[in-house]
Design a protein around this nucleic acid. Structure first.
Lengths: 247, 247
DNA sequence: AAGTGGTCTAGACCACGAA
DNA sequence: TCGTGGTCTAGACCACTTC
């Protein structure tokens, strides 16, 4: 998957700056222009493509943002050295995840409580003493088998409506994402062995390797929710799509 | 981390289109403009900021690319519903990884072979029968303790110089990344239990949960290398940075 | 000092799609 | 039909940086 093909999703007539971008990207990816190579100046490219400098600039700016070239004033633009391998990891909605596997999705609420946050939780969610949270435990099924165990805290100060929501039919994830507009999240991914509780809930044996994803979601500067998702390791994989990037 | 702050890395004087972008992003993230809200037309914004339409267009185009707004001809631009939670996951160079933890890094080659690819490997790397690969096993240390076990195949047809490279001092990852310009990669992340071999190599007990990352790297249409990295689960975490995105 | 990229303008034409 | 966004132009000024 190339940058040019991402930007123009199979359209019939790519715009001029997209064609320029694609041409240059092709030469870089093919090795014709190796790292360190100076690509033509904006003026030169504008002349080659018989277009204005702004059109060339648009293409080169996108290449620079993608990390394929580096732009230096007075010197020109250069093909960069690839450094780190970065990957765009998609963590999707669990329901969509299951259905994309062609299995039926089911949701079950195991426990629901409203209580004061303890010290550890207050620190993680950046709450004051006495703050109240909703504490949920639930399971997601793919077909008949448990697919994910979810432990979730919701900051009631951030989402007061959660107090009256039973969460017995609708999972907290989709419910929140409808209600809380645009959020930023931090993820942590680990491999763990299933403890007795997880083994019981996911119907696997104790010690089975599991993928554990912790996510903390912020909105407008305050933390809204803290969630831990545990997937049986052998039945779940995270697929990350490419992306060469510079560090 | 906001889009605007990413684009202007703490610079003193953000450009006008960055300021426009930041203003609009702020209203969306704060909830002032909820999903579905129509944001002002380009002409209106141009008038508000007393600038040309192109400047506004630059800001709105970036917001659209980031998925915060959706642009519909004849109707205007609208704040999108957040759908999937996507995350930008960084998979860094192992040496950088270790050193960022403040520990000394060490590398050890366990085995090196040059041989024909078997059927499974040929399929994964899209090779013809009889294709030759370099097969490596190595360990990466953080301090005195093994940190990562690496199994790697290199497609000799793609990187002939690998035949004469002993890989006893330099790890194949950095070596390849210097030599192979710009690549695309596919990742798969799983939790596994350490088998006898992994347990022995990583000096952990059998069955210990581990994070296993498979990566297949392509360059110019052909597969260059296939690598499996195994990290002890409790000592390694993948950190993914935010990123709200629409599906 | 000179040439580069960064930014911006005040126009323009077009395709598309909602009215 | 007609206004919107998508694209492009032919200029312009500026800051920066290397020469």
């Amino acid at each position: 998957m190339t940058l040019a093909s991402v930007l123009s999703r199979g359209d019939s007539a790519p715009s001029l700056h997209q064609r320029i971008l694609g041409d240059i990207e092709g030469r870089i990816l093919s090795g014709e222009w190796p790292p360190g190579h100076r690509i033509p100046f904006e003026m030169e490219l504008a002349a080659q493509y018989a277009c204005s400098r702004m059109t060339v600039n648009k293409a080169l700016s996108q290449l620079a943002k993608a990390g394929l070239i580096e732009r230096r004033k007075r010197s020109g633009s250069f093909v960069t050295q690839p450094h780190a391998q970065s990957a765009v990891l998609e963590i999707r909605d669990i329901k969509a995840e299951v259905q994309s596997l062609g299995m039926t999705y089911d949701y079950e609420l195991l426990a629901r409580a409203q209580r004061r946050a303890n010290a550890d939780e207050r620190e993680q969610l950046d709450l004051r003493a006495g703050s109240v949270v909703i504490d949920l435990q639930c399971r997601h099924f793919a077909g008949r088998r448990p697919f994910t165990y979810e432990e979730r805290l919701i900051n009631l100060a951030a989402v007061p409506e959660a107090a009256t929501q039973p969460f017995d039919k609708v999972a907290p994830g989709p419910w929140l994402i409808e209600r809380v507009p645009w959020s930023a999240a931090e993820h942590r991914i680990q491999a763990i062995g299933a403890d007795a509780e997880i083994a019981n809930v996911l119907e696997i044996s104790e010690g089975t390797p599991c993928l554990q994803i912790d996510r903390r979601t912020r909105m407008n500067g305050i933390y809204v929710t803290l969630v831990r998702l545990v997937y049986p390791g052998q039945t779940f994989e995270l697929i990350a799509n490419f992306a060469p990037m510079q560090s």
